[in-house]
């Protein structure tokens, strides 16, 4: 009996030692992660229900921030713009990235080189590429409008103003497509290479044409990849900030150019409405959460079929 308790004491000691070793491994990262990520996340949810300038004591105001947000046309505009941008960007980028991946999945020379080049825009700094973009699409001097004018005889007054008015959202979409299509193509390419060749051989025997092969083999087989791509791309779209601010030309954005994160930034760092900004940030979180949950639900519905 005495021996037994002695043993379990030793086991306990060993266990404690094991725990301590593991915690020592985790601590350097976890302390930083807890202090600079977890605590701010918790605080963000609290701040959303307060009126706070960041200096004086915060006042609890309940749901007031949220009610005000949905009566704030500037906020509603930024929300609509962000949705429009996301709805435009996600399907378009998926279509182009998948198309490119299918092309590149054929036996062709120079695949590696092409893959590397197509990731250039993705790794390039946003300042450099948006500046070039603003030059190329410059309304009066840029080469794009120059071609429209000279080759397609678009009258001077009808030349598109890419960075003002309603076209700005289209500019965001086209720019994002250019910047990230290579990145998503690489993901799709990996997905394609995971599809067993036997499936295509079987469909050959059944006399399937190219479209049928895509429809009944490639697309269903790529569902896990598409699931992942839709989630990360949509989240990425709702976070749009740099692209918008730099393409629209400065942080003082007009209603038609405004996006959600730019709204949060303005409220927080130029108007010091910390609580109000956090409420808008919570809306961003809820959207991202909804997209993720919706995709998971969709995915499990298919997985059960």
């Amino acid at each position: 009996m005495a021996k037994n308790t002695e043993l379990s004491a030793a086991a306990k000691k060993r266990n404690r030692r094991k725990n301590l070793v593991a915690y020592a491994f985790i601590a350097p990262n976890f302390i930083g992660f807890a202090v600079f990520t977890m605590i701010p996340i918790v605080v963000a949810f609290g701040m959303a229900f307060c009126n706070w300038d960041g200096n004086n004591a915060p006042q609890f105001t309940g749901l007031k921030n949220f009610i005000d947000l949905f009566q704030d046309t500037f906020f509603l505009n930024s929300l609509v713009n962000t949705f429009l941008y996301s709805i435009g960007t996600v399907p378009l980028t998926i279509a182009v990235a998948l198309g490119l991946a299918i092309l590149l999945n054929q036996k062709i020379r120079g695949r590696g080189v092409f893959r590397a080049i197509s990731c250039f825009p993705y790794v390039s700094s946003i300042i450099a590429v948006t500046t070039v973009w603003r030059m190329i699409f410059h309304s009066s001097k840029g080469p794009v409008n120059n071609i429209l004018y000279n080759a397609f005889h678009v009258p001077k007054d009808d030349l598109p103003q890419w960075f003002t008015g309603h076209l700005i959202i289209l500019s965001y979409i086209l720019f994002s497509l250019w910047k990230s299509m290579g990145y998503y193509m690489v993901i799709y390419l990996a997905g394609l290479q995971g599809i067993s060749g036997e499936l295509y051989e079987a469909s050959d025997l059944d006399g399937a044409n190219v479209w049928q092969k895509f429809r009944y083999v490639t697309w269903p087989q790529l569902r896990p990849t598409t699931f992942f791509v839709v989630i990360i791309m949509t989240i990425g779209c709702f976070k749009i900030y740099d692209t918008a601010v730099l393409l629209a030309g400065g942080s003082n954005m007009s209603t038609s150019a405004m996006v959600l994160v730019a709204f949060i930034y303005q409220e927080a760092f130029t108007k010091w409405n910390m609580g109000y900004a956090s409420a808008a940030a919570i809306i961003l979180f809820l959207i991202v959460l909804a997209v993720t949950l919706f995709q998971f639900k969709n995915e499990s519905k298919y997985a059960n079929d």
Binding site: V43, A44, I235, K239, V288
Partner: peptide, 18 residues
């Protein structure tokens, strides 16, 4: 927290850092 956009908590993080 992996899918949590940094933009959601950048404001309290800034106040804390300050």
């Amino acid at each position: 927290t992996i899918a949590m956009p940094w933009q959601v908590y950048m404001v309290p993080q800034f106040l804390m850092m300050r």
